[in-house]
Amino acid sequence: MRSNGLSKEHVHSITREALETLTYQKYGDSPTIKSYTNWKLFEENSPLKLPIEANAGSVEIKANVLISGSEAKFDLPKGVELSEGTLGLSQPEESRILGFHFYALKKAYRLKITEDLLEPLVIVSHLSEGAFISHHISIEAENVKAPIIIYDMGEEGTKSFVVEIKAKNAEFELLTVGKHKGLSHYLLRASLGEETRVKAFTIISGGKMSHHREDYSLEGAKSELVLRGMPISINSAVDYLTNVLQYGEKTVGETRVQGFSYENGWTVHRGVAKVFESAKGSSSEVNSHIIIMDKGSLGVSVPMLEVDTGEIENASHSSSVAQFDEDALFYLRVRGLTRKEALNLFVHGIGEALSDHLEKLRSKARSNIKELTEGLL
């Protein structure tokens, strides 16, 4: 891969003294925003206690953007421009974890997509050493169509990865794959301008503690988001947050999450959908369902819908936490499958159904589902 010459823009920073004034969450008592992340682990493995530099590890994925440890390499296709800096959609003063992120951040990279992409733009964030490492990528696009794949991979240490997206009159197909063993903090924050359409699918294989948050702001008229999420915890923990804020008229927000918890796993989904008064003629939906695959595992589903306008096209939300259907398992087992094979087939099948709304990335989404589910259960 080649490194590109970069134009530089300001990157936020924060002092050690300012960090001491920040909390992980401002309002921890409300049941809808109660913290399910074990922040004590992040405190014990913060950039104040761990090295903030690391060597690049071995990554087999062919990437256009590869950030591993403290090193970054680029092999960008035609129609993607590179510079340094952020879009300013996230600030260090928001929370202690973002304060840690910007405190440890060495460089932030901006990608500008200037023409339609026929092949997926592949971005990899990776850590394989016992350090606290921050990675930050911003993507901006206007009047283009682009498929994007984001891999968030952590084998050791603590990794914070922030992705900022700003789009107008654009169409994105977005596949996010989280595969963790250690501690991970992930924030995707997107601003969708008028007539921007995003089809997103997220699959997360939790680590020791995985805090994964996606914020979408539908600011322009007729902007649309279709989000499917699949958090999986096997003897691990995932706290998955989705926030969809609708400001523009005739916007569409649709979130559906199906999570799984197994072998003392801890899977949480907290989904917020809010339609503001200015979003007349909009529709909003948030569905959250967690399946507990065995005794000893935990599932939490907390969807919340708030509508400030009476001129709404549609608004709904649903929630469930259920035990795995043992009758379905028995049906598969009498046909010769082992328990693990039957559970893998069950999870894989739901994952394929969730990813069906993706077009260009469908085969890649299914292969990632297969990789993350087979052999894990």
Rank of each mutant, 00 (worst) to 15 (best):
residue 6 L to N: 09
residue 13 S to W: 10
residue 17 E to P: 05
residue 17 E to H: 11
residue 18 A to D: 15
residue 19 L to S: 09
residue 23 T to I: 08
residue 25 Q to N: 13
residue 25 Q to G: 10
residue 29 D to S: 10
residue 30 S to I: 08
residue 33 I to A: 14
residue 38 N to A: 03
residue 39 W to K: 02
residue 39 W to M: 00
residue 41 L to I: 04
residue 43 E to I: 00
residue 51 P to H: 05
residue 52 I to K: 10
residue 55 N to I: 13
residue 57 G to N: 04
residue 58 S to E: 15
residue 59 V to G: 04
residue 59 V to F: 00
residue 60 E to D: 12
residue 61 I to F: 02
residue 61 I to N: 07
residue 68 S to D: 07
residue 70 S to G: 14
residue 70 S to C: 13
residue 72 A to S: 12
residue 73 K to L: 10
residue 75 D to F: 08
residue 77 P to M: 06
residue 82 L to I: 05
residue 83 S to T: 11
residue 83 S to Q: 14
residue 85 G to I: 06
residue 85 G to K: 09
residue 85 G to S: 06
residue 92 P to Y: 13
residue 92 P to L: 10
residue 93 E to F: 08
residue 93 E to G: 03
residue 93 E to K: 13
residue 94 E to K: 14
residue 94 E to Q: 11
residue 95 S to G: 01
residue 102 F to W: 05
residue 108 A to L: 11
residue 110 R to Q: 13
residue 117 L to A: 04
residue 119 E to S: 08
residue 124 V to C: 07
residue 128 S to F: 04
residue 129 E to Y: 12
residue 129 E to Q: 14
residue 132 F to A: 04
residue 133 I to P: 05
residue 133 I to E: 07
residue 134 S to F: 10
residue 160 S to H: 05
residue 162 V to A: 00
residue 165 I to A: 09
residue 165 I to E: 13
residue 167 A to L: 14
residue 169 N to A: 05
residue 174 L to E: 06
residue 174 L to A: 02
residue 175 L to V: 00
residue 177 V to H: 01
residue 178 G to R: 06
residue 178 G to S: 15
residue 178 G to M: 02
residue 179 K to L: 10
residue 180 H to D: 13
residue 183 L to N: 05
residue 186 Y to E: 01
residue 188 L to A: 06
residue 189 R to A: 06
residue 191 S to Y: 15
residue 191 S to N: 13
residue 192 L to H: 14
residue 196 T to R: 09
residue 197 R to D: 11
residue 197 R to P: 02
residue 202 T to N: 15
residue 203 I to W: 01
residue 203 I to C: 00
residue 204 I to M: 02
residue 204 I to D: 01
residue 207 G to C: 10
residue 207 G to V: 08
residue 208 K to S: 05
residue 221 A to V: 04
residue 221 A to G: 13
residue 223 S to Q: 14
residue 224 E to G: 06
residue 225 L to R: 07
residue 227 L to M: 11
residue 229 G to E: 04
residue 230 M to K: 02
residue 236 S to F: 07
residue 237 A to S: 14
residue 238 V to M: 11
residue 238 V to D: 15
residue 239 D to E: 11
residue 248 G to R: 08
residue 249 E to W: 10
residue 250 K to E: 15
residue 251 T to Q: 04
residue 254 E to Q: 15
residue 255 T to P: 02
residue 258 Q to R: 14
residue 259 G to S: 03
residue 263 E to A: 11
residue 264 N to H: 12
residue 272 V to L: 15
residue 273 A to E: 10
residue 275 V to P: 07
residue 276 F to L: 13
residue 277 E to A: 11
residue 278 S to Q: 12
residue 280 K to Y: 08
residue 286 V to R: 05
residue 287 N to I: 09
residue 287 N to A: 12
residue 287 N to E: 15
residue 289 H to D: 01
residue 291 I to S: 03
residue 292 I to C: 13
residue 293 M to N: 04
residue 297 S to E: 09
residue 300 V to I: 15
residue 303 P to N: 13
residue 306 E to M: 15
residue 307 V to W: 11
residue 307 V to T: 14
residue 309 T to I: 12
residue 314 N to E: 15
residue 319 S to P: 01
residue 320 S to K: 00
residue 322 A to K: 09
residue 322 A to H: 01
residue 331 Y to W: 05
residue 335 R to Y: 06
residue 335 R to I: 03
residue 335 R to T: 01
residue 340 K to Q: 09
residue 341 E to N: 04
residue 347 V to F: 02
residue 350 I to L: 00
residue 351 G to R: 03
residue 351 G to S: 01
residue 354 L to A: 02
residue 356 D to K: 15
residue 368 N to Q: 14
residue 373 T to L: 00
residue 377 L to W: 11
